[in-house]
Each structure stands twice: as structure tokens, then as C-alpha cells.
Design a protein around this nucleic acid. Structure first.
Length: 429
RNA sequence: GGAGGGGUUCCCGAGUGGCCAAAGGGAUCAGACUGUAAAUCUGACGCGAAAGCUUCGGUGGUUCGAAUCCACCCCCCUCCA
């Protein structure tokens, strides 16, 4: 993949990555006419991006590979306002300092996915605070606000429920969000000839607002493209586990947990996700799907997905570590592990805790490691034969964990259910 | 401001004086089956080993006894002004 004669739109279409575009054929022509600049915005709503952000981010990368120039925008300013799009309720504002810290983190994360050193199509990361903070209210209202019709704004689907519904109104602050995002697009058009904005399908209203504003302020023609919301076949929300959001930050979601998340993708979703989250060719994905269909038993797709995405986000090292842990834990053969392997497991991100005493009741240990929510539940797990110590099932409610039974005198691997593990280390030894 | 309806355990939703820690469904968790799937079946699902303790918007009250009755308060919804 390299030059700009690649039809990026067709590629995205074949991956199911296009929810909506503005002026379809014109956009296609525009893109095939040369190297274009495009952007997507990421607001600092937490100290890390999560896997939901990955889709538009990878689309930026796809454009770059197709010979275009991506800009990743961090919403240092918009993040201070809060996007109301399709949100049920007004949100709490975070402090300026906190958001500033998050901006720094996101900038670093975003950088990891784009190429900043490839000549004309080198990516850049910008912060909309740089141009929004210097705006003064009068200028803003006269020069930007004047181009927006409140009548049109309240018609937008993204804020409709907030306008219509009683009991969950919308503040002027959040209502203004759309204008700021529109201003970003116009500004990037003006500064960098950025002619395309990419975003999630919930961003459609904000994107078209920016297209209108670019035309009104600078007579520029710009385009919008939205990617679909990632959905799961069973209707559950994508990107959550029992432990919460799946973050890109390895300190918040370990590479091992990240790998496991993808590995556990349902069959009904996995081929779609391969299109969304990897750079494998659609033909390659189709081949995998056919092979899986033909073969009995476990499909290979989940493994491919987990491998590809984990490598992409956590690098080869993170992937190796994840696979090392997964293999050790799920092969059931703990006896193959050496002492240094255990130490490595801990370093690789297997959840673990130290215990000071030379022994501990099994029930207490389950609770203190978080494998069970309460003593009652811990007992239930034990009686259900759901707990294993160093790979051996244990159904003794009175069982004690001692440093004698620990592997290498230190390590006790607790397992609850089929896939919850915790490594206990006897510290005082 | 007036009239009516409602707030129940994670969610939906029964329950209108004791048999209620509270039906049923969903979600979740465990077991069997399997592919670290899906579907299905079984079990658990406020805390506690138990005795027992704490829950039904809030605060008081009536009663031997309240989620259920009374008073006041808070919040939500519908209709009218």
C-alpha cells in the first residue's frame, strides 16, 4: 500500500467502516485527486484512550497509508465543555488541571498509531486549545456565532432528546459544543487545508456543522465521513468487561487482559472486528472465515484478532508477554514453569498480590484478591469446585495456603472459574 | 398554582399489615457440555459459618408486627392553568 491512487473509500467500504459520508462521489474524486489532509478529534474525557477510540484512529492510519496526511486533534478546549451528542444527561465538568494532564496523555497515545516521519504525508497532533483559548467572547459571537442558526442546531438529532425531554435539559455550555467543534474544522481547513473530518457516527451533526462553517468563513469545500458505532451481535455494549472499560494504557488494562478481551470475542462479531481493528486485507479475512467455517471446533479468527490488535497497541513485546501468560495459564501445565517464569508473569501483568504471613485461609485469600466478592461467595465457589490452587481443584472450605505448598516456596496461583487468575507471592520468605 | 400517577434489592417489574430478604424476567457469577465460544441444562445471586443483622425515595409515627397504614419532606411522570 502506498500511493494516492489507492481508492481508500472503496477499501473502507469493503471493511464496513463507512456509516455516512457527505457528497459521496465528490469525496471519492477529491481523495483520488491528490494527497489530502484530514483530521479526527479525541476529547480528553479520561486519562487514556480506550478501544472505542481505536476505530477512527485506525481510519486515520488507513488514510495515511493511502497517501493522505492525518491530523489527530486533542480536544483540550472541547474537553472542557463536554460533547452533548446522544448523551442522556448533562455532564460534570472536570477541572482545568485535570484535563490538561489528560491532554498530555492522549497526545502520547495518539502518536503511537501514526507515522510522523514519512515526508508529505507525515502526521501531526494538534490541540484545539491553541486556537480556542485566545478567542474572546465578542469576536467569537460576532464572527463565529453569527453563522449558526439556533433553529438548525436544535433540530440536530444528537441533541434532540436533551431538548425534547423534560427533566434532562441541556446547558448553554454543552449546547455550544457543536460550534466549537465546527470552528475546529474551519480552523484546520484555514491553517492546514484540512478538507475531511472523520469521526464516529455520533459526530455527524458536529461534522456537518464544521463543513457549513468552513464554507461560510472561508468558502472552502470540505467533507465528512463517519465510521459506524461498534456493536456486538448480542446487543451488549462493546468495549466493556466485568472489570470495566478496556483501555489502551497498559497501566490501566494490562496487555494480557487486553489480549484476553479480544480472544474472547464472540464468533458472531469476530470477522467484523477483524475488518475494523486490523490491517489485514478483506480477502485475507474472508479466507480465514472460510477456513473456520470448514473446520470443526475452535476458529482461528479470535487468535488472529487478539494477536493483531495487541501487537498494534502494545507492540511485539506486549504481545509476547500476553501470549506467554495465556499459554501458561490455560494450558493447565504449571509444572513447566520455572521460577523466573513466575516472576515474568508478574511483570507481564498477571494480577498479583503479596502476602506477609506465612499462611492464609483460602476463603480469605479469595476475598482479598478480589476473586470473590464476599466470604459467602468465596465459600460458594469452593463448594462448586470452581477454585484451583496451583492448578489443582480444591473444594475444602477450611483449606489453608502455606508457603510450604507454594511453588518455589513463594508462588501460589489461584484460579476461580475458568479464566480468573491471581498470583499470590509469599513475601517474607 | 390545580388534578392524577409513580419512586421496591444491578436493571425491568410483582407485592398494599404477619406466610417477605421480598414473585417473575433480564444481567451477572459458578458447574455440566464445549472451543478460555454460542445455545442449552443446573445452581447461586443484600451481609453473615450461624444465630442474626441491614434493605423496599427520606424522616418521624400508628401497631405485638410495616415495603405495605398515617404525617411531613424530596424526586420523577401525565394532564390542566
Amino acid at each position: 500500500m502506498s500511493e494516492s491512487n489507492v481508492d481508500i473509500i472503496s477499501d473502507l467500504e469493503s471493511r464496513g467502516l463507512i456509516a455516512q459520508t457527505t457528497s459521496g462521489d465528490e469525496l471519492r474524486e477529491h481523495l483520488s485527486g491528490g494527497s489530502r489532509t484530514l483530521y479526527s478529534g479525541f476529547d480528553p474525557t479520561a486519562d487514556s484512550l480506550h478501544i472505542g477510540h481505536l476505530v477512527p484512529l485506525l481510519v486515520l492510519r488507513r488514510f495515511q497509508l493511502a497517501g493522505h496526511k492525518p491530523i489527530a486533534l486533542v480536544g483540550g478546549a472541547t474537553g472542557m465543555i463536554g460533547d452533548p451528542s446522544f448523551k442522556a444527561a448533562e455532564r460534570q465538568l472536570n477541572s482545568v488541571e485535570v484535563i490538561g494532564g489528560w491532554v498530555d496523555r492522549l497526545q502520547g497515545q495518539l502518536s503511537q498509531f501514526l507515522d510522523f516521519d514519512c515526508g508529505d504525508t507525515s502526521a501531526s497532533v494538534v490541540n484545539n486549545l491553541d486556537w480556542i483559548k485566545s478567542l474572546n467572547v465578542i469576536d467569537f459571537l460576532r464572527e463565529v456565532g453569527k453563522h449558526f442558526s439556533v433553529n438548525a442546531m436544535i433540530q440536530k438529532e444528537s441533541v434532540k432528546q436533551r431538548i425534547d425531554r423534560e427533566g434532562s435539559g441541556i446547558s448553554f455550555t454543552e449546547f455550544s459544543y457543536m460550534i466549537l467543534q465546527s470552528y475546529d474544522f474551519a480552523e484546520l481547513y484555514h491553517r492546514h487545508e484540512c478538507t475531511l473530518q472523520v469521526g464516529g457516527s455520533d459526530q455527524w451533526g458536529n461534522i456537518t456543522g464544521g463543513i457549513d462553517l468552513s464554507r461560510r468563513l472561508y468558502k472552502g469545500q470540505t467533507f465528512g465521513l463517519t465510521v459506524p458505532l461498534v456493536t456486538k451481535a448480542d446487543g451488549q455494549k462493546f468495549g466493556k468487561t466485568e472489570t470495566g472499560t478496556v483501555w489502551l494504557d497498559p497501566k490501566k488494562t494490562s496487555p494480557y487482559a487486553f489480549y484476553q478481551f479480544w480472544l474472547n470475542t464472540a464468533d458472531a462479531d469476530v470477522y467484523k472486528f477483524l475488518h475494523y481493528f486490523t490491517f489485514l486485507e478483506p480477502s485475507e479475512i474472508a479466507r480465514i472465515e472460510e477456513e473456520d467455517k470448514a473446520a470443526q471446533g475452535r476458529p482461528q479468527a479470535q487468535g488472529v484478532l487478539a494477536t493483531e490488535v495487541t501487537r498494534l497497541v502494545h507492540g511485539q513485546e506486549g504481545l509476547d508477554a500476553s501470549q506467554r501468560i495465556s499459554e501458561a495459564l490455560f494450558s493447565g501445565e504449571l509444572s513447566h514453569l520455572t521460577e523466573s517464569d513466575f516472576e515474568q508473569l508478574r511483570l507481564d501483568g498477571l494480577p498479583g498480590t503479596y502476602i506477609e504471613e506465612s499462611k492464609s485461609g483460602l476463603v480469605d485469600a479469595l476475598v482479598s484478591t478480589g476473586l470473590a466478592k464476599s466470604n459467602r461467595v468465596a465459600r460458594e465457589f469452593i463448594s462448586n469446585n470452581a477454585v484451583a490452587i496451583n492448578g489443582e481443584k480444591c473444594d475444602d472450605l477450611e483449606a489453608q495456603l502455606t508457603s510450604e505448598q507454594a511453588l518455589f516456596g513463594k508462588y501460589v496461583l489461584l484460579k476461580r472459574g475458568k479464566k480468573m487468575f491471581h498470583l499470590l507471592t509469599f513475601a517474607g520468605v
